[in-house]
Amino acid sequence: MRAVITVVGKDCVGILAEVSNACARNNVNISEVSQSILQDMFCMIMMADISKCAIPFAEFKAQLESKSEQLGLSIHVMHEDIFNSMHRI
């Protein structure tokens, strides 16, 4: 199962490190990363393989999303199927 991690907000030092660290700690492999900066707004999208995640998905999601406040960003972790079903026929 793959999850889509999105990070949107004001650019600052260490965003990538924070998110990828959390993934590594929980044995989540990041398979793809795309990132762009639009008018100071940082926008990163990661595809992550969570099939071997060391903790339950809900917990992993809560862990990452809890960093939202600390970094002043908005972080979402969602199952990739929601995007596939909505945007692909």
């Binding site: 949107v8 762009s36 999208i45 969602m78 929601i82 909505m86």
Partner: peptide, 16 residues
Amino acid sequence: MINTKDILETITMIQD
């Protein structure tokens, strides 16, 4: 990979 625009569109729909 799914298009960035599509991903952000879905998130905006849910969040906002």
